[in-house]
Design a protein around this nucleic acid. Structure first.
Lengths: 216, 216
DNA sequence: GTCTATACAACGATAGAC
DNA sequence: GTCTATCGTTGTATAGAC
């Protein structure tokens, strides 16, 4: 083991003043410190470039705290972005089942989560930062590609999985924009079965259908 | 919409203190004044609520100037939003032709215009304001429903034209977000034929296809 | 005494250097 | 191909709160 963090906390080295084990005296908001550090580091280095160890160091705590408080790097990212649910978890729930109905399950779950979670407030915030800062765009882009879409598509994709993933993302993002941010009727108020019937076939074709102009 | 544009700019109505006819002395930036007034009034009252006469009055010029400098209320709106092209004009160019290939023409035109117009800068700005201010959202929403989508869909739509229009909008907006703002690969760099082959069938189904779960 | 927040050590995977 | 550095994650012992 090589590592940096704790390996050389040997006495008398320097820096970290020999954190003692066990629960810290009091008032130490480790969770909050991690969140702040995560926002900063994710913004600076993107999702891949930000390491759990760096975030923990910035927060002045042990890397294992990320797991303890959030469950992992992905969940920490989700929390730092104030998303109503952890997308990675949703994906895991949505993927198993008939691949020919995956599009249906995706739309359905998307609608349920976002309808339930205070309309489009968090979505609008996210979209705003993506449209404002290139760093935010990079952050989200890496997360989406590395964590989300890849997992969905690689389970079913016959060819061009990355393109299929991006297409799925485009329809989902567009649906979110129109329904929750722009609030364009009648899509903004349409019930779930209506939206699912309309949009699920699109996702399904992006996932498993032909991508050239042949069969619609 | 009522008879708005320049029809009734009859002299001596009220308000403005008896402007003389003919070219004004000099230096009067009528175009810029109209733009500023338009941004303010559109933001305050939405697209429908903002009248050409009110905008002109706010700018201290004659309503006919809107037609002279911009060509109409819609084009003024487009200019106020800094869009690279007048969507209403694009629609007019895209609608005629085989209705079964309308989706194809829409994607194609969309790609051409936005690829040509400095990437996603203006699109990001537009999306940012829509996500930030409810007034901006209302403004765009009204414009999109009243002016854009309706015109496309009513030329071909068998049933539920408004829903179809919103669905088309969702895929277009999502494509713009992913390709130009988020820059998600490989969709961000895909050539036009690839994108058209992938997305056009979606738009075509939204336009003229079945909206329930039957034939994909 | 119990519970839990914490620190430390180590594992398997991965990517790049040589 | 081997080696090494670093990653995310897991296991476990301990210190302090309750």
């Amino acid at each position: 083991m090589v590592g940096v963090t704790a390996a050389e906390h040997a006495p008398g080295v320097d820096a970290a003043p020999a954190r003692r084990r066990g629960r810290r005296p009091g008032g130490a908001d480790t969770r909050g410190a991690l969140l702040n550090a995560a926002r900063a580091v994710f913004a600076e280095r993107g999702f891949d470039g930000a390491t759990v160890r760096l975030i923990a160091e910035r927060a002045g705590v042990d890397p294992a705290m990320v797991n303890h408080w959030f469950g992992g790097k992905e969940a920490l990212f989700t929390a730092a972005l104030d998303l109503p649910a952890d997308p990675a978890t949703l994906i895991a729930q949505v993927v198993p089942g008939d691949p020919e109905r995956l599009g249906e399950r995706i739309v359905s779950r998307f609608l349920t989560v976002w309808d339930h979670a205070g309309g489009g407030r968090p979505l609008a915030a996210l979209i705003r930062s993506v449209a404002s800062h290139e760093t935010a765009a990079r952050m989200v882009r890496e997360f989406v590609t590395r964590v989300l879409l890849r997992r969905v598509v690689e389970t079913v994709a016959p060819d061009r999985p990355d393109l299929r993933a991006a297409l799925v993302g485009s329809q989902i993002v567009g649906l979110g924009m129109v329904r929750y941010v722009l609030r364009l009727e009648p899509l903004a108020s349409a019930d779930h079965p209506t939206v699912i019937a309309a949009v699920a076939p699109t996702l399904q074709r992006y996932l498993t259908g032909p991508l050239d102009g042949t069969g619609s």
